[in-house]
Amino acid sequence: MSFITYLLNGISLGSVYSIIALGYTMVYGIAKMLNFAHGDVIMIGGYIIFTFMSTLGLNPFLAVLIAIILCTLLGITVERIAYKPLRRAPSLAVLITAIGVSYLLQNLALLIFGAEAKSFTSVIPLKPISLAGGKLIISGETLITIPTCILIMTVLNIFIKKSKTGRAMIAVSEDKDAAVLMGINVNKTIAITFAIGSALAAIASTLMFSTYTNLSSTSGAMPGIKAFVAAVFGGIGSIPGAMIGGILLGIIEILSRAYISTQLGDAIVFLVLIIVLLVKPTGILGKKIQEKV
């Protein structure tokens, strides 16, 4: 029974990773940049919910809604100020800028909310259900997280395949210059991508901090990096890939924490990344891109 509990926890954590990974994978596919600050948007989202819910005593759902709006604005602002001027710059410069933004958000949070870790109150009102005579207990967070992830994935997939904006995103990700010639506003499309990614980050932060309640200025960085690992794992640029990668990674992490070593969980996740990149650099569902001279 304990194995099934671990597995469920793994899928639940993996669902959070896949929602975060969506933000990475979309931005990477469209703007061709690794948005290092994505993980820190999650942390900021957590602080916003915490402030509105625990400090100001607002309704949890309202707090989550405010967090989604503010995170979206944050994502657009960061893109506008830090990344847009560097659109045609070498990728090394963009990457270092993204690291700078990540550092900036972390230290802003540290200054505003203090170094002391906050304890997040779960937003999810569901009670845990127990199966098999109390041997298998499924928490309310798990019950909410997994369907939410599936819902987001489906809606996003339909949005990208069917809507005009979604198709514009595909066009920009395939060829920016050709997309301009087709009358697509590339800057606007990239901004929308950042907005969607950041809104998803806010949702992910709700789910993640409801399960793992420790909230500090660095608590977004590690999940962010792991979600990137998940995105690479599934094949960067692919939405179903992000989901598969995220869930696999969550299961691997929880099981290795449970059966191998608690402290080496992170190390094992990174080892998986390295092995995946060596065996299949494009990930499970990724497409190979030929480099032209």
């Binding site: 560097l86 710059a89 410069a93 963009v94 270092i96 800028t97 690291i99 700078g100 933004v101 900036l104």
Partner: peptide, 9 residues
């Protein structure tokens, strides 16, 4: 952090 961003831009 700000120095890093500004320098890069």
């Amino acid at each position: 952090a700000i120095v890093l961003i500004v320098m890069m831009i």
